[in-house]
Amino acid sequence: MHYPEPISKLMDSFMKLPGIGPKTAGRLAFFVLSMEEEHVLDFAKALVNAKRNLSYCSVCGHITDQDPCSICQDDKRDQSIVCVVQDPKDVIAMEKMREYGGLYHVLHGSISPMDGIGPEDINIPDLLKRLKNDQIKEVILATNPNIEGEATAMYISRLLKPSGIRMTRIAHGLPVGGDLEYADEVTLSKALEGRRDL
């Protein structure tokens, strides 16, 4: 089916987003056409505003509208602990929990030889520079529990071992409310590995 050029371009723009195929792009484009012009303009302004006014914190790599970010500027946070995560979304997830009071370091990816991503392609060199600070006593590796995340955590822990900084890894395993019978072997294995005394 041939669409008028403005709709076609709008659909092409939507398809650049992850997980959006031609059908969803078409639905979104026609939904935008049905919106009031004021709402469409607000939507467009929000996109432009986010792109222009957000950057990455020069200290931790988290997404921010000020540099350094509000987390790095907060002197009430424990300056001796750094939690290493893969993406800014992981910082947001950790902050929702309201249990962690230390600092963060965002890698912006994970080591993946299959995709040609090595340690120098993610934010590891900046982490090493940052850890020269005598104040940091513990690094929590909170990369994803997949092959790439495990490889990244292992690489960082081997790199930092000589420094004497305490290295910890977040526990992986069964979610609260989960059933053993539905868990896969890897999840059960990680849950067993991470067991603790009661």
Score class of each variant (00 low, 15 high):
residue 131 L to E: 02
residue 60 C to Y: 01
residue 190 K to I: 03
residue 79 Q to N: 13
residue 88 P to V: 04
residue 62 H to C: 11
residue 27 R to T: 02
residue 64 T to S: 11
residue 124 I to G: 00
residue 116 G to L: 07
residue 127 L to K: 07
residue 81 I to R: 08
residue 77 R to F: 04
residue 124 I to F: 00
residue 41 L to A: 13
residue 38 E to C: 02
residue 75 D to K: 13
residue 166 R to T: 15
residue 145 P to G: 02
residue 168 T to A: 07
residue 19 G to F: 03
residue 14 F to W: 10
residue 25 A to G: 12
residue 104 Y to T: 04
residue 148 E to C: 05
residue 94 M to V: 11
residue 182 Y to T: 15
residue 10 L to P: 06
residue 13 S to M: 09
residue 5 E to T: 10
residue 26 G to T: 01
residue 95 E to W: 03
residue 118 G to N: 07
residue 117 I to S: 05
residue 120 E to A: 09
residue 107 L to Q: 07
residue 23 K to N: 12
residue 113 P to A: 09
residue 72 C to I: 09
residue 26 G to H: 06
residue 101 G to K: 14
residue 29 A to E: 04
residue 156 I to A: 05
residue 120 E to F: 01
residue 117 I to V: 14
residue 132 K to Y: 03
residue 142 A to S: 12
residue 126 D to M: 12
residue 63 I to E: 11
residue 38 E to Q: 11
residue 110 S to M: 04
residue 153 A to K: 06
residue 121 D to S: 15
residue 175 P to E: 11
residue 115 D to A: 10
residue 61 G to D: 03
residue 190 K to P: 00
residue 22 P to V: 00
residue 33 L to E: 12
residue 21 G to A: 11
residue 104 Y to E: 07
residue 20 I to V: 15
residue 144 N to H: 09
residue 176 V to A: 15
residue 27 R to K: 15
residue 71 I to E: 06
residue 147 I to F: 10
residue 71 I to K: 00
residue 160 L to M: 06
residue 160 L to G: 05
residue 34 S to L: 13
residue 10 L to G: 04
residue 129 K to A: 05
residue 100 Y to L: 05
residue 58 S to E: 02
residue 61 G to H: 00
residue 71 I to V: 15
residue 22 P to K: 14
residue 58 S to V: 09
residue 63 I to D: 08
residue 193 E to I: 12
residue 98 R to Y: 13
residue 95 E to Q: 08
residue 74 D to G: 07
residue 191 A to D: 11
residue 132 K to V: 08
residue 152 T to P: 05
residue 52 R to H: 09
residue 5 E to I: 08
residue 66 Q to E: 14
residue 96 K to S: 13
residue 75 D to Q: 12
residue 103 L to M: 14
residue 154 M to D: 03
residue 189 S to W: 07
residue 114 M to V: 14
residue 32 V to C: 12
residue 28 L to R: 12
residue 26 G to F: 13
residue 35 M to F: 06
residue 160 L to I: 12
residue 49 N to F: 01
residue 17 L to A: 12
residue 72 C to N: 04
residue 164 G to N: 08
residue 33 L to D: 10
residue 63 I to C: 04
residue 118 G to K: 13
residue 113 P to E: 03
residue 54 L to H: 07
residue 49 N to C: 08
residue 9 K to G: 06
residue 186 V to P: 00
residue 81 I to T: 07
residue 112 S to W: 00
residue 18 P to T: 04
residue 86 Q to N: 13
residue 21 G to V: 10
residue 24 T to Y: 02
residue 100 Y to E: 07
residue 31 F to L: 14
